[in-house]
Design a protein around this nucleic acid. Structure first.
Lengths: 237, 237
DNA sequence: CGCCTCTTTGAGCTCAATCAAGGTGTGTGG
DNA sequence: CCACACACCTTGATTGAGCTCAAAGAGGCG
């Protein structure tokens, strides 16, 4: 039942990710010893807040949302993890770690669950690898701080900033218009990300749709006029 | 003019901090090679947002506030760094790092400026040390995520949560009442931390003063009734 | 003494939350 | 196959928490 990672062909898949790219397949195999591929369905939970954290994860395909439970069953979304992203690695160093977030699958996804010991032992031996993990973390930290700086900005700025953030990778090269956001998002998820209500987000985005700035079909959002969206994002300056 | 760290007696000072505690004085000396002690006055800047980051820091005494410039000269405060805290370490791994924050002295303070190369070379060799740095970072990340989960909470909850967070270390043992907040804070700083205006913060805290929950003299805030403050913090649940 | 920072209080207004209601599409179980 | 639940999207009306603006007092410092 449990096939080896090699049999499953996961190793080369891992090597395509930035973190593992400089590693040999043999190294990767070592690093991911005793790991299992976890297949999740839409809205299925990968890790649950407060549970003891025996594993950390590398996202293989699909996407996951990391959210924090808060007032009245509300969940505020902290981050979206795409393939190549590492989840919960940096809490592995704590003596008795528990997951600080809920991790929920968005659509069918796959993740590699790696035992905590690997991080403390094998990964620990590879300073360069640890530094690359740290970079991911540092980028997330940066994003969080960015958002914090926007707390007092009007809601449209927040939403615009959120969308721009999501297309940052691809935008770098393709500075032309017409960028599609890589993960399908509901309005509710956007609302939970920027700390607002669904209704407010809808009002703002409908407006933008009418003006031809964005376009949605089946939860896939496309930004038609990047320039204008960026202007809105910065309009509170 | 520039005395060695050994002459200044900084080495034993460093050893009292968690990160360096397991290290020998010789190791610490190695790790902090070519570093300088930087003495700052109240409101003086240690690092400035956007500048190229050739150094990272360990806070020796006093305190620093880390803030992010935002709309209209507003500064949103992201973190307060007390002695033992490491600043800007995790961006050292980037190829051409620039400071992602403003770092400003609160009262007279001292910090040890350590060259970037040390992190990439000497520190890099010590996985355990890197893990300890990662723990600090992870704690800060956690705090940020916590705050994010409170965005929709009413302002009093946010302020209460902020105060409780600041006394978390000492509270652990001394669960009795009467806890003083370790750093002097202006209302404006509190406002910038929770993402509100001075006026709103004042209104809330005056109320609390009247009710005998807190007490201020000369920017030193003392929580008189911890239980009630925690109740307010959680009241939005 | 004037300047600057910090605190305080009041009055009015605005943005986004809340409440309410209706529409669509998909899955699911009888 | 239909009915029902459920997730998601949309629009409108109302309301209130917190922002803005204004004005002023209280130290501290050169």
């Amino acid at each position: 039942m449990t096939k080896s990672l090699k049999e499953l062909g996961v190793l080369p898949e891992l090597k395509t990710f930035d973190i593992f790219h400089p590693c040999s397949l043999e190294q990767i195999e070592q690093l991911c010893k005793n790991s299992t591929v976890c297949v999740t369905k839409h809205r299925e939970s990968l890790f649950e807040f407060g549970n003891p954290a025996h594993y950390f994860c590398v996202v293989l395909s699909g996407a996951y949302k990391l959210s924090r439970p808060s007032a009245g069953g509300e969940n505020s979304i902290v981050h979206f993890s795409a393939p190549g992203d590492v989840i919960a690695a940096f809490i592995m160093t704590q003596p008795q770690p528990t997951y600080p977030l809920n991790v929920i699958s968005m659509g069918p996804s796959r993740a590699l669950k790696i035992p905590r010991e690997n991080y403390l032992e094998t990964w620990h031996q590879m300073p360069d690898l640890i530094f690359r993990v740290q970079s991911l973390l540092s980028a997330r930290m940066n994003a969080l701080q960015n958002q914090k700086a926007l707390t007092k900005a009007p809601l449209p700025s927040k939403v615009a900033s959120f969308l721009v953030h999501l297309i940052e990778h691809q935008r770098s090269k393709n500075s032309s218009e017409q960028v599609q956001i890589p993960i399908p998002l509901t309005r509710k998820e956007i609302a939970d990300s920027v700390g607002a209500t669904v209704e407010s987000v809808i009002r703002i985005m409908s407006e933008w749709s009418k003006k031809g700035l964005i376009q949605t079909n089946d939860q896939h959002i496309t930004i038609l006029n990047t320039k204008e969206i960026i202007r809105i994002k910065d309009s509170s300056l």
